[in-house]
Design a protein around this nucleic acid. Sequence first.
DNA 1: TATATTGTTGCACAATAGTGCAAATATAAG
DNA 2: CTTATATTTGCACTATTGTGCAACAATATA
Lengths: 100, 100
Amino acid sequence: MTPADLQQLADLLKALGETNRLSLVCRLCECEKPQNAMCLCDCCSVDASGVSRHLKILTQEGIVSVERKGRTRSYSLNRAFVARRLRDLADRIELTPELS
Amino acid sequence: MTPADLQQLADLLKALGETNRLSLVCRLCECEKPQNAMCLCDCCSVDASGVSRHLKILTQEGIVSVERKGRTRSYSLNRAFVARRLRDLADRIELTPELS
DNA sequence: TATATTGTTGCACAATAGTGCAAATATAAG
DNA sequence: CTTATATTTGCACTATTGTGCAACAATATA
């Protein structure tokens, strides 16, 4: 694992490791269809601008995707991507090194 | 998922989501045997006091365990615990809700 | 007892992060 | 064109976090 990979992984975990952002992720988890930002406002204790900023961070980390639809933006969770990252780390952690 | 559970999970992810702490975790990953703090110092770019503080946070979150041995302390990674938490989240994220 | 080793803690400080509010932007609708 | 809705951004502010240094505590060794 290169330092850059490690940094990238840390950034992903940091993005997930904030209460309001994790709330947003969990909320998106439960939605079949993409949700717009206003709709997501009530799942965390910040105003619209705060939600916007949190969604921006989640987007930058590849955790969610945005699709512009008229004046709204639809956010959806990149389920496979995030799950893959978490499982890769879990695998690495659980793999006890061979006794050499 | 209760707000308390969510907060707890966020705390775990936050603990993992800092570069130097994640370095420590990855380093412990590769060790068969518990390591003392001094031995872990060279895997991240902070001095002994910084390592001590990071290990304290990791311990508080249950990510690592400590065992006192004389004047040294041996740290080991709680592999099963961390892997379990990460996989649980991955499962939750990947489970698309049923169309109702 | 004196000294070296290991690790933690208090303090100060700089950097980062999260927040609300108000203004700006963008687009849709009337 | 005017207005309403959705979202972003600038600004200011506060809180949190990461850090090194020096002092301290605890334990082993000479």
